[in-house]
Design a protein around this nucleic acid. Structure first.
Lengths: 349, 349
DNA sequence: CTGTTAGCGCTTTCAC
DNA sequence: GTGAAAGCGCTAACAG
């Protein structure tokens, strides 16, 4: 099957080693030889055998990117940004940086996450980027940490983006707690006191941190008494937001605001409120989190906490390639910014 | 670096060959030996060296999935569905089907598409799924076709999902032309005659087919005279929809409906109309294409053509694995279904 | 600057 | 049912 290095070498009348050197560009080769080799490569339409090269060099050009749900733009944006960083910067020798960033969709399942980790370890991936909230089950957390350590030990760079730090990994955490707190403070400042909260799946770090920030704001203002009753958990999707809103209204028809754990949920919240004949924000204010592209276009435009997902992903990509210096302590925090828009207003009366 | 097959063999007191056989499960091995080997694997935490195995076996367990824009849920949904098909069906011997489906984001750039194709060829990918509209530049189309043929010749299964057929590849086309036609017919039936069209980038097959379908409907009704003037091209994103709408209104303030090349654009269209003080659908009807999850939640709910993206992606995945019979002629068409919702209504007056 | 020489870790005939 | 041995195609010392 297919033309090999040796074929190219024969054609260019040099040794295989020389061809290899020309191709990897990391070793001086006479200009004349180089062009001769390159021409042979072209004529033969030679394509390097990745596995063979990975085996010999004990490292591959694969970079794994794990995401919880690739159909969710939150992850799509991050993953796209990571991948965009993999292209060789102009002016580098063609081959060098041609990493293949591969996006793996865990669907939020711990088993599949571990499975992908093994698959990537098997491929001897050059680096790994784990994105999004982590599942908090202790066994699983330990398993992931162990795998990460083993990978790091074998030379794979591990970068975390949007989840809490673990040992042996560089981490970009999102300020979910602080952001959530500021968001709820915004609502409190507007005068809201009965605020519903639609949380994500219970066992995710992102879910917990955002909920904690929300509660912290309530507590600081002394209105935390009903917090438990006014919280409903669901998935990070639109349908959960819809259902949770109906449940919240059932529990307390008098609430004047609902905070959603993310923008996608917020969309469902809005839909449910409208279906119940409630106006936004006249009757109920709504806020989300993330500031996905559609949020500014929602009607009314959604108040939310903006997370610079693209920038974070790009930085994670550079860290994975070792193209950007480690943050102090290996951990950097990405801040969230309040985008106060039309979906929040002072409560009526 | 790391424990190898030989280590496992030593520990289990068998030969390397036997360990290999146990692991790949495609050869009879005595039960007692098998368990002994498996235990050794466990104790040593052995992980197969993918590159080595790929080299020796001349095939890898990588499956490439190319998408135009991973931040767009259209592609996220398809890619996620493809990837979900890669998991080993319950009851199979652990190792067998553990394919690694890797998602590659071309950003719609021909160079990057070709680049990924080469990267995947280099990795000796087991299969390839190309999704979404193709770029119509003749040189590029030829280059892609050539690469596809070469890949197919070397045993890589090539599957197309949502783009026109090429030789040596199994294809799932989307009925963009027919769908677009039916959508515009829906508007015509409602009584609209002055219909604006916001198209995607000019050189994409998807763009062209949808536009052709639209025009075909107009022509059949004899109202095609202004079609050219009432068409504006842009990207497949919200901002383009917004800008294009302003341009359309500038050209003809009397139009009563706008068809967008996809739902994301339609969102921008709606935003622009609202900003111009126009009501939907009272003043202007709006229609999209794809039926992405957010479309049903838009206000008003968006009339659109539903494409079964998840099903199509899943099927593409199975075809890539050879788990589903080839459609007759290697080409199957995925139909679009009209979802008539609140954003379209008869024109006023 | 270029060629020679060993492997990298696994799969796979081919014997036993 | 299991072992021995010969590569798969490439890289990386090491000479020259």
């Amino acid at each position: 099957m297919a033309v090999t290095l040796a074929d190219v070498a024969a054609r260019a009348r040099v040794s295989a080693a020389t061809v290899s050197r020309v191709l990897s560009g990391n070793y001086p080769v006479a200009e004349s030889t180089r062009t001769r080799v390159l021409r042979a490569v072209d004529e033969l339409e030679y394509v390097v055998n990745g596995p063979a090269s990975a085996l010999a060099a004990a490292t591959s050009d694969l970079v794994g990117v794990l995401v919880n749900d690739i159909a969710d733009p939150f992850f799509g944006i991050i993953a796209g940004a990571v991948q965009a960083e993999m292209v060789t910067p102009a002016g580098e020798s063609g081959r060098g940086g041609e990493k293949l960033a591969v996006i793996c969709n865990t669907g939020g399942s711990p088993e599949r996450e571990l499975n992908y980790l093994t698959l990537l370890q098997r491929q001897r991936a050059a680096a790994l980027v784990l994105t999004g909230g982590a599942v908090e089950h202790p066994d699983h957390a330990a398993a992931v940490a162990a795998k990460a350590s083993r990978l790091a030990a074998s030379g794979t760079r591990v970068v975390l983006c949007g989840r809490p730090p673990i040992e042996d990994a560089t981490t970009l955490t999102f300020d979910n707690r602080g952001g959530a707190r500021r968001l709820t403070e915004h609502l409190l400042t507007l005068g809201h006191r009965r605020i519903g909260y639609v949380a994500g799946p219970a066992e995710r770090t992102t879910t917990r941190h955002r909920l904690e920030g929300h509660r912290a704001a309530l507590t600081a203002t002394g209105v935390e008494q009903d917090a438990e009753r006014l919280t409903v958990h669901g998935l990070y999707d639109r349908a959960s937001g819809y259902d949770a809103t109906l449940e919240l209204l059932r529990r307390d028809r008098t609430l004047t605001a609902i905070v959603a754990a993310n923008d996608t949920i917020a969309l469902g919240v809005c839909a449910a409120l409208r279906d119940q004949g409630l106006r936004i924000p006249a009757d109920v204010s709504v806020a989300g989190f993330d500031d996905l592209p559609f949020s500014a276009d929602a009607v009314p435009a959604l108040t939310t906490m903006r997370l610079p997902l693209h920038e974070a992903g790009a930085r994670a990509g550079r860290l994975a390639l070792g193209r950007e210096p480690q943050p102090p302590g290996g951990v950097a925090m990405v801040r969230a910014e309040l985008m106060a828009r039309a979906s929040t207003a002072p409560p009526r009366g």
